[in-house]
Simulated assay, not measured.
Amino acid sequence: MDIKQLRYFTAVVQEGGFSGAAAKLHLSQPSLSKAIRTLEEQIGFQLLERTTKRVSLTESGSVFYGRALHILGEMDIFEKEVNEVKVVGSGEVRLGMIESVKNWIPNILSWYRSEYPDMHVVLKEVLGRNDIEQALRDYAVHICLTNEFIDEPDIVTAPLYEEKLVLVLNENHPLASRETIQFAHIANEPFIITSKGFQTRNNIMDAFEEAKVSPNICYDADRFETILTLVQAGIGISIIPRNYIGEVVPATLRIYEMDSRSLERKVYLAYIKNRYRPPAIEALLQHMIDSTALS
């Protein structure tokens, strides 16, 4: 008895007969019938009741069918795990991420290192929505951390936590002495904004529109790191995720929470719905969800 015989047998049961199973398996019907008879001879009992119209399981065949499905399911998992190891060696997980998670991800990776010390972690910066979808579908990453809700049938987007976008100023900026700052106060200030196509830019523009003022956009930048460097140099002001700055605010920086719901958003975990993930990668995904899942 071998795996091929089990696949033949389950196909006959699932198709309700030899003709449909033969077509599905790309075999001739006589060859398939012979293979099932050989299997019955090898195990020593009849698996199928054959009639002119269809076949049905014998009582013993029903028990055998259940065990065959279990074995084939385990074999499929085994083959996928072997292929994964063949491709990535001792094991590799690739995470796509936005910049603002840089202060959230260390605790996750510390846990993962302690639980799966042989897994190699690759962190890839994936920012725009199109890049996220392509990276997931091309299997360039296993999981993406993003501020974009991706409404696609093949992609699961699970909420992780909420974050706020805050106004950032140089410590010597004339507005830095104020207790609160409104959008009208910053309308004419040189503004540094994330590039077109990024969700952060959309959030910022929505907030200004709701306040019925327009930003004085003087600089576009792809990275928060660049934006903060320009702000600290006194080049302009900006709005970026509070989580990116971290718990300790640099002495050269002042931050303000603005009164706008558009500057409050969720961070999501995105992954391909039906992609096979080895247990070590599935464990990381589940730990991320469990650690900060929104109610």
Rank of each mutant, 00 (worst) to 15 (best):
H185S: 05
P117W: 06
E49P: 00
D76F: 04
I155Q: 05
D259V: 02
I281M: 11
E210C: 00
E162M: 11
A251E: 15
N243K: 14
V12A: 09
A251G: 13
K196Y: 04
G236A: 05
L69P: 05
S177W: 00
R201D: 12
Y116R: 13
T229W: 11
I245T: 13
F78Y: 12
E133P: 00
F149T: 06
A207K: 04
E282H: 11
T52I: 01
D118G: 08
G197D: 02
M258C: 08
S177G: 08
K212W: 02
V12Q: 11
I245F: 06
L228G: 10
I204H: 02
T38W: 00
A68W: 04
E115T: 08
L294N: 04
D259T: 04
I204Y: 02
S295D: 00
T146H: 12
Y268M: 01
F9T: 04
A23V: 12
M288W: 11
V93F: 12
V55F: 08
I77C: 04
Y271I: 03
F149R: 14
E225W: 09
L127C: 03
E189N: 07
L127M: 08
M205F: 07
V141T: 13
E125R: 06
V121A: 12
E74I: 00
E92W: 03
A11K: 05
Y268E: 09
N83H: 03
K4W: 13
F18N: 04
I3T: 13
T180I: 13
Y219L: 04
W111H: 14
A11M: 01
S62R: 15
L160W: 08
P241L: 03
P278D: 12
N216G: 03
L160D: 06
L285Y: 03
L167H: 03
S100D: 07
T51V: 11
A207F: 02
T58N: 09
V88K: 09
H70C: 09
N202L: 10
S56N: 01
R7I: 13
D154N: 09
I181H: 10
E282L: 07
L109I: 01
F198W: 02
V87W: 10
A21P: 05
N274W: 07
V231T: 10
E41G: 07
A23I: 08
E171V: 13
G66K: 13
N216D: 08
T292C: 15
E162C: 09
N147T: 14
I240L: 01
A187R: 14
I204P: 02
D290R: 05
S28Y: 10
N216T: 01
V63M: 13
I237E: 08
I105E: 03
I43D: 11
L167S: 03
G89Q: 05
E84L: 00
M75N: 10
I150D: 06
